[in-house]
């Protein structure tokens, strides 16, 4: 226990740096993933060609099934080592849940609401931006939340291709046989995931109340 505390007090700049790298890794992956997956999800909702949807979902699913270590290793010859390939790999993982939830969120919007929007003179873009997107935000947010938690835990592996992060503490700890280092890395990742999950959960709840008045407040 002593070794544990002395490690924290001695090495806290390193720990903070690792934490910061971890945050950058995870959140750039999630944010980029959202920027890519949400528009693709919307396109799929409006696509009239059934097989395109199947193929896109198949590919997004496929990314999920590749073991993370393998994916990271494959990216080394393509993009080298460091942050960039790590973010790309994590981004590929984040696509599926966000894509799926965007798609489902858009489909959850009541048919009557869409009919009346169209009949009153909403253009397609206006329908997407003012009706469907706000109404499916809780769904999309929940996809982002699930993804974030996964990505934070998978990001520990990114240190293997030199991207740093809390994983670096674990890998180094293994190398020099320092259990406290391994613990700090592991617990740090867990805490980060829990905090992110909690905060995003609050955001999701707020969006649900704001944009999806389905609770029965009637007399």
């Amino acid at each position: 226990m002593n070794a544990f505390w002395s490690f924290i007090t001695e090495r806290y700049p390193d720990i903070l740096k690792a934490l910061q790298e971890h945050l950058v890794l995870s959140f750039s992956a999630v944010i980029l993933g959202t920027i890519i997956a949400v528009p693709i999800g919307i396109l799929l909702v409006y696509s009239r060609v059934g097989w395109i949807n199947s193929i896109v979902f198949f590919i997004a699913n496929l990314f999920q099934t590749i073991p993370s270590l393998a994916l990271l290793a494959i990216l080394i010859p393509l993009l080298g080592i460091g942050m960039k390939p790590a973010i790309l790999a994590l981004l590929l993982y984040s696509l599926m849940p966000i894509l799926r939830n965007t798609y489902d969120g858009f489909h959850s919007v009541d048919e009557g609401v869409l009919n009346s929007a169209r009949g009153m003179g909403y253009s397609t873009a206006q329908t997407i931006l003012r009706i469907q997107l706000p109404l499916s935000l809780p769904y999309i947010m929940s996809g982002i939340r699930i993804t974030t938690v996964y990505i934070i835990s998978w990001a520990t592996l990114a240190s293997l291709i030199g991207a740093g992060g809390l994983g670096q503490l674990i890998v180094s700890g293994l190398g020099v046989n320092k259990p406290e280092m391994i613990f700090i890395g592991g617990i740090g990742a867990i805490l980060l995931a829990l905090v992110a999950d909690g905060l995003l959960g609050l955001l999701e709840g707020w969006l649900s109340r704001r944009y999806h008045q389905t609770r029965d407040a009637a007399i």
Partner: peptide
């Protein structure tokens, strides 16, 4: 003007 059976008010 357009009125439909399912009303279709925007819930948000």
């Amino acid at each position: 003007g357009y009125v439909i059976q399912s009303v279709g008010l925007f819930p948000h």
